[in-house]
């Protein structure tokens, strides 16, 4: 094996290792596609120096990115890799105390108001019903002879 062949073999071995998690059929197909690409690119450009081979491999990209791309090419609709973000819990409810306080305040106000109104009505009635005039008799008695 020449040095350039070795470069290619090393590259494909890296792809193979990165693709260990892919189903075997997909991994073999990927390796065959890349091998074919390299063979044809070499044949077309007559690339035989180490630098030329490296250029072909650099353009293919790093093995991990290629396998990452293969990972996303599933036939099924993609499911999110990460679980959904945890449900954002609503802030602790202060509602019972707040509402109770408001209700108590309202009821208190109503009671006070009613009490005041009843008191006022009774006072007014008292004034109307009891115009206390000094008894004329007593005046007459006092000014009498």
């Amino acid at each position: 094996m020449t040095q350039t062949d070795q470069l290619v073999a090393d590259y494909l071995a890296r792809v193979g290792r990165a693709a260990a998690g892919l189903p075997a059929g997909r991994r073999e197909e990927l390796l065959a596609d890349l091998r074919e690409h390299i063979d044809i690119a070499r044949a077309e450009s007559g690339a035989e120096t180490e630098a030329e081979i490296r250029t072909i491999l650099d353009r293919l990209g790093d093995p991990e990115s290629i396998v990452a791309a293969a990972d996303t090419q599933t036939d099924l609709p993609r499911v999110p890799a990460a679980p959904l973000p945890p449900y954002q819990a609503a802030p602790p409810r202060r509602f019972p105390w707040l509402v109770l306080t408001i209700v108590a305040a309202v009821i208190g106000t109503v009671i006070l108001f009613c009490g005041f109104v009843m008191f006022a009505v009774r006072s007014d009635g008292g004034v109307e019903q009891a115009p206390v005039y000094p008894a004329p008799t007593s005046v007459e008695v006092s000014t009498g002879p």
Partner: peptide
């Protein structure tokens, strides 16, 4: 890769071609 500015990730297109074929 020339048209889309991916000249250093040509290899990432083979998995896509593979899926389109499947």
């Amino acid at each position: 890769s020339g048209a889309l500015g991916m000249s250093t990730s040509e290899g990432t297109m083979y998995p896509l071609l593979s899926r389109l074929r499947r």
